[in-house]
Amino acid sequence: MPSVAVLLSVGRHPASGRARRAPLDARALEMAFSLPNAAVHAIHAGNPDEPALRDYLGMGMERLTVLSIPRDGDPVPALTAHLEQLSPDMVLCGSRAEGGEDSGMVPYLIAHALGYAMVADIAAVSASAATATLTQALPRGRRRLIETGLPVVATVNTAAPAPRQSSFGRARRGVIDILAADAPPDTLADQCEIRPWRPRPKRMRLAAAASAADRLKAMTETRSGEGAVMIQPSPEEAARAIYAYLVEKRIIGDGS
């Protein structure tokens, strides 16, 4: 019976900015559920009163452990200490989270601190007593099969199966166990400005192509090395450049 710890963060909806379950962490939990007979431990480091944590309980967990740390604290030491005590066979989390320090280095730092193997971007998993077989998702749909000894830290890719629905009834009944934990202030985060990611605007082009395939290509391909780079232009300059571009691409008429 493998023991699996799943690290869960609080996500942020890209459009509304509201807290929600982080989609990739939810996939990690779903993957843990898919392991036969696994003892699943769900762990969050942060504010135990965050309502979005109940979204994870709604997936069918009876309990969720929250290591209570302040907002600006570094979660890694608290998580490492808790995992050391728990000594799971496998630690799963999303390969990317949605809230600042939840993302990026957390799984790597934990694997390093605990001396566990680390595999990124897995799409599927199966485990035996001493080893785990992980399917790693690589770009363009390629897959790589990885055989690793336990324990292992693995991050879960978008290619993993979608998470199950979170139900209101189960979320309401689930129990949050709060553990006090130490968290040193995160000195690096203090120096950074954190703002929501937004997609880069795409240039509009009118596709005057003969076939649908050409139009699709014109819409999807990215060309580089065109145009000029303007650094901090004045609003008038910027507007003129955009206007000239729209006229050039025949998206609007030139007024004549």
Partner: peptide, 30 residues
């Protein structure tokens, strides 16, 4: 099925999740 079992089928479960997080079923900015 929805409130206790979390078994809303198809794209409906996703629409419900977006409704909760973004107040509209396709998760668009308000």
């Amino acid at each position: 099925e929805t409130l206790e079992r979390g078994a809303t089928p198809g794209k409906a479960a996703l629409a419900l999740e977006e409704l909760r997080a973004a107040d509209n079923p396709s998760g668009r900015p308000a």
